[in-house]
Amino acid sequence: MTTNGRLDVRFAGAGGQGIVMAGEVLAAAALRMGRSAAHSKAYGPASRGGASRSDVVVSDGAVGFPLVRRPNIVVALTDEAYRKYGHDHADDAVVIVDVDVAAPRNGALVAPIVETARRIVGTDVASGVVGLGVLSRSLDVFDVDILRGTIAERVPAALEDANLEAFAAGREMVG
């Protein structure tokens, strides 16, 4: 957590990449860890394709301003979404981007997130889950078992194993 006990997380991606679910999973997991959270997302045409965002604020105490300001963590899944929503982050932010992002900032973790989702689950929708895996390994804030349990509750039963495998694959992308 940051100094004031608050963490601003942004998932940026295209509609259909599962970023809304990723945000909701993270917020729900935070609650299970005894923290407070808020989740907001882009509405309207952006959520049906094009660049979109899914934002989570996690706080030790009650969340003050519920919208993400300058994110401490960015997970960007497309170049367009990174350019629209991903660049204005905190100086010391953890930045995780898909290989699609053309010009990530120095120090960003670049990983084949979307391709991995397609390979393991067979659909882009699991990209957010892979991103959660990367995120969970990149900083030591979220309880991995709680994240796994929350993912399992949210995905269709038939795809539960595949999604947990995708989550694990995301974790393995961090060296």
Partner: peptide, 10 residues
């Protein structure tokens, strides 16, 4: 407003 309507809070 739209933000409060659509934002999930604890």
């Amino acid at each position: 407003d739209e933000v409060l309507g659509h934002t999930a809070e604890t």
